[in-house]
C-alpha cells in the first residue's frame, strides 16, 4: 500500500506542476456550466435539481478524461523514465493502480470544484441532496471508467496524441454501445443474448440512471468490473512490453 500511495502522490503532484491541470479544470468548469445553462436549461426547468447539469458529464468526459489519462504511461515511455520506474522493487499492478487512482482523484477534484452549482440549487430551492450526492458519485464513477480505459490506451504508445485519440474512441464505444445504431450492427448475425450483453455495456444507459440519483447494484458491479478489467489489461500491456 505504501508503494501505491507513493505513486499516487507523485502522479498527483505531476498534474499540478503543469499549467495544463489548471487549464483542464477551468475548461471543465466552464463547459459543465455552459452545457447546463444553455443546453440543459438549468434555470428554465424551474426545478431544484442538478439533472440538467449531470446529463452532459459523460460527453464532457469523453474528450476531457482521455486528456487526463493520456500522459500516464506514454510520457514515461517518451522520456525513458519507465525504465527507472519498472526497475524499482514494485509490482506492475501497484504502479498501474497508483497511476489510475491519481488520475481519478484529479478528476474528482475537478468535479468537486463544481460545488457552486450545488450551492445555487440549494439557494434557489430545496433539492434532494441525497440524489445530488448519488449523482456526483455516479458521475465520478463514469470518470473512473474512462480513466481506466484511457490509461490502457496510454500504455500502448509513447505518443500522447495517439493515446488520447485511442482512449477517446474506446470510451465512445462504451458510451454508445446501447444506442440502436451500434446494436443494429450486431443484430443481424449475433444471438440475442449477445446483443443484450452489448447493450448492457452502455455507459450512457447506466449513467442516465445515475444522473437521477439511482444507484443500483447492477450498475455498481458493472462499473467496478469494467475498471478492474481495464487495470488488469493495463498491467498486462505494460508487462508484455518487457517481453517483446
Amino acid at each position: 500500500m505504501d508503494i501505491v500511495r507513493t505513486v499516487v502522490r507523485r502522479e498527483l503532484a505531476a498534474y499540478f506542476t503543469t499549467p495544463l491541470a489548471y487549464v483542464f479544470i477551468v475548461i471543465f468548469l466552464a463547459l459543465a456550466g455552459a452545457f447546463a445553462f444553455f443546453l440543459g436549461g438549468f434555470f428554465e426547468r424551474g426545478q431544484a435539481d442538478l439533472e440538467s447539469f449531470f446529463v452532459f458529464h459523460p460527453w464532457l468526459y469523453l474528450f476531457l478524461v482521455p486528456a487526463v489519462a493520456m500522459r500516464l504511461w506514454a510520457e514515461e515511455r517518451r522520456t525513458g523514465t519507465i525504465e527507472l520506474l519498472m526497475t524499482l522493487p514494485a509490482s506492475t499492478f501497484q504502479i498501474v493502480l497508483g497511476k489510475f487512482l491519481a488520475a481519478w482523484i484529479f478528476t474528482g477534484i475537478a468535479l468537486a470544484l463544481t460545488f457552486p452549482f450545488w450551492l445555487t440549487v440549494n439557494y434557489l430551492g430545496e433539492p434532494d441532496n441525497g440524489v445530488i450526492l448519488a449523482a456526483y458519485l455516479g458521475s465520478w464513477a463514469i470518470a473512473g471508467a474512462f480513466i481506466a480505459i484511457g490509461a490502457c490506451a496510454s500504455a500502448l504508445t509513447k505518443n500522447q496524441v495517439i493515446a488520447f485519440v485511442l482512449g477517446a474512441a474506446i470510451c465512445f464505444l462504451f458510451l454508445m454501445s446501447g444506442v440502436d445504431l451500434v446494436l443494429a450492427a450486431f443484430r443481424g448475425w449475433a444471438p440475442d443474448w449477445f446483443v443484450d450483453l452489448v447493450a448492457s455495456f452502455s455507459l450512457i444507459t447506466h449513467f442516465n440512471e445515475l444522473a437521477k440519483g439511482v444507484i443500483n447494484a447492477a450498475t455498481a458491479v458493472y462499473l467496478a468490473t469494467l475498471v478492474g478489467v481495464c487495470l488488469l489489461v493495463n498491467t498486462l500491456i505494460v508487462d508484455l512490453e518487457k517481453a517483446r
Binding site: 506542476t17 523514465t81 525504465e83 527507472l84
Partner: peptide, 13 residues
C-alpha cells in the same frame, strides 16, 4: 542500484 542509459528522471521534480 541502476542508472539507465541517458539518466532518465522526472523533469518536473
Amino acid at each position: 542500484g541502476y542508472l539507465p542509459e541517458g539518466a532518465p528522471s522526472y523533469g518536473d521534480m
